[in-house]
Design a binder for these strands. Sequence first.
DNA 1: TCTGGGGTCCTAGGACCC
DNA 2: TCTGGGGTCCTAGGACCC
Length: 437
Amino acid sequence: MYALVDCRSFYVSCERVFRPDLWGKPVVVLSNNDGCIIARSQEAKALGLRMGEAVFKCQHILKQNEVHVFSANFGLYGDLSARIMSVLEGFSPDIEIYSIDEAFLVFPNDNRDYEVLGRHICERVLRWVGVPVGVGFGHSKTLAKAAHEISKKGSGVCDIHQRGVTHTLQSLPVADIWGIGKRHSAFLNSNGIYTARQFRDMPPEVVRKRMHTPGFRTQQELKGLSCIPLEAVAEERKQIVSSRSFGTKLTEQSDVRGALADNVAVASEKLRFYGQAAQALMVFIATSRYNDDYYSRSVVIPLPEATASSRILTHYSGIGLEYVYKPGKRYAKSGVMLMNLVKADHIQGNLFYKGACQDTALMKAVDAINGRWGRHTLQLAVTQWHNRIWKMNQNMKSKRFTTSWNELPEVMSPCVADLYKKKTTQTESNGSFPTSK
DNA sequence: TCTGGGGTCCTAGGACCC
DNA sequence: TCTGGGGTCCTAGGACCC
């Protein structure tokens, strides 16, 4: 039996852990640069705020309804996610961490009451971490996902077999099936298929012909035949991307070069963390896609030898930039993609290339120092970190409550709060600040 | 004026091999 | 006039996920 555990409005719930006063109030979390909405509380959804909506377009709704707005704080979300996953591991050793806010668990298929189990999971995660979750059960991952969809409208827990699969799939729109995206649901709708049940009962040859292997697998899964196995051990990464929109549009090549160097620093740190090296590097830059003169170029640079050195990768990113940079544009975004990844201890030498220094010891030292003192403590001079004008806008970011000693939340017990009040009134005149926390 | 970031899998078709 | 059969590798583009 598969279980899917999914956090409710995950980023919003993370913010609420340290702002319990925001329960029941409309809250949204914004993308990097505070550009658009990427998470909404139930109350915010009810106001008609849409996923991915540009902030400047719905500013009036946010203001009128006193919506609480947060800049993205991915460090906080990642840390709370890790805590939730470790709680879930206590329920089953067979776990696949599917995304930052979702995990699949596998349980023996016996006669136990799975909805009771589901409620235990919800209670424990809420009590131990503070984030509400929902749980769906089914004999395949797709059925567990479907059960979870249904659980959102009810108590937060659903065993699709207990409720009756056919009956449940009948109430699920085909577009809400895991693996059926926009294109396929439009195609299905145009052929009179609106519900998950109708899709499940379509002739398999038709599904295979029009939606190929992935669509066929999804259909099999809805019949209770598990085709998508649990991936308990994460596969090796095939590519690593780092890209960022700039806080302000860039026109100088040297600024773009600095931003690219930072993209390389972020991506290659991840690369080294996974013990991998890249055989090729893609560089891309773009102006705003919403402008008429949208300009976007990319170039792939094969490297003479696989590497994980930020110094070498930054060098090649500069060469790539020469190819794609066109003067006179207002650049909005840059990025790098590390490709054709191999294990760092299995690098194939190049017969016609003398081999560059891999900087292994240097990178190890850089990562150790940055790990201890923060990502931008040591970096290449080309980044021009302290003069960067591409800095992200993040004007409403919460603190690093769980990952920085200097930003621990302060808690006051009621009796201390009373003392604090008294002291504050007493000392207001001379301005000295009470120290009790 | 202002609009995010990071991934995977599958297929068709071209280019090549014997 | 008539021109085989069996394969691999690579890439671009499409579709999907969070």
